[in-house]
Simulated assay, not measured.
Amino acid sequence: MTSPLVLTLIAAPGALPATLPARIRAALGDMGAIPGTPEWLAEGEACDLPFLELAPEQAVSIARGAIGALPVDAIAQPAEGRRKRLLLADMDSTIVTSETLDEIAAYAGLKAEVAAITARSMNGEIEFSAALRERVALLKGLDVAALQKTWEATEYSAGARELIATLAADGAVTALVSGGFTWFTGRVAQGLGFTHHFANTLEIEADALLGSVAEPILDRDAKLAILKRLAAENGLALTATAAVGDGANDLAMLGAAGLGVAYRAKPIVAAAARARLDHAGLRGLLFAMGYAAQDIKPG
């Protein structure tokens, strides 16, 4: 017999119709799967549907056909080992709602220009390191007060506090890994309780940005290397890890992690990722790992 798998349906609170799991269960059966009994992880928000004899990507395709236009996500994976022991998370547009570099640029009157470069980089149209250098160079001479103002306006994504608090309470290692800047990752890591944080360093002198970033730049290859290093340091196989992010520079770590989730992702990332959260908040990542509502810490 094949190993048991599980399809998890996830939505914003109250947005998962009570009848949907049964409809998807029937659709899976029609396509040759052996579906089990749906189990609600959170009423109206998340439901597990165990199944056998069908590949995860096929189950997700069938589920999405039944979901249609409903704001519901579907993630399928092996049932064993769902609770990952290491999480790597991108920061901008993932753990926080904004792109912090774009917001800094607003104080130089260059937000539109910088944001356009950011968008192309995050969708894989231009190389990340070159794009980062180009954007930072435009900010040469900007007062560091712009960083503080940007931080004061920065908001956490829905479910970010719960995600990190729950994993920490369960003894998992969490790392914030960003192509942004340590000036922000340090504050986010402290505020949410991440175990580690890694990012690029803005070069500053006399309270002004020098328009440069310390080398080497933390790019997609560096994110992958950090995933592998932290897994090895904690005695974990990559199958015991998770990663979440939205941009092209996250693709390598998403592909290597046991559970790689594209969160509100750019088109190139959404197309390549094995798992996606397009509608639910970051609580959804906990449901994908098998946590029920009563297991989730408020943060």
Rank of each mutant, 00 (worst) to 15 (best):
A288E: 06
L285Q: 01
L254P: 02
S178V: 09
R276N: 11
L277I: 06
R83W: 11
T118W: 09
S212I: 12
Q190N: 15
A272M: 07
G124L: 06
A272R: 15
A116K: 08
G235T: 12
A18R: 15
L236G: 00
T97C: 07
L238Y: 11
I67H: 04
T201L: 09
L54H: 06
L254G: 03
A169Y: 15
G32I: 07
A240W: 01
T19A: 15
T195E: 06
G281L: 00
A11R: 04
H197C: 14
A293N: 11
L7T: 03
L132H: 00
G32R: 05
L142V: 14
L5K: 13
F287D: 03
A12I: 03
A15V: 11
F194G: 04
Q190F: 11
G29N: 05
S212F: 04
T37I: 13
D102N: 08
L88Q: 05
Q77G: 01
I104D: 00
A69R: 12
D73R: 00
Y291T: 09
Y156W: 09
P38S: 03
A175G: 05
R64T: 00
R229G: 03
D143R: 11
L101V: 14
A206D: 15
A74V: 01
S3C: 03
T19G: 07
L41H: 14
S3E: 14
D90F: 06
A248C: 08
A115F: 09
A231E: 06
R161C: 02
A12W: 03
A55C: 05
G44E: 10
G258N: 03
V213K: 01
T97D: 05
L138I: 12
G179F: 04
A231N: 07
R25H: 04
A168V: 14
G191M: 08
A292P: 08
L236D: 00
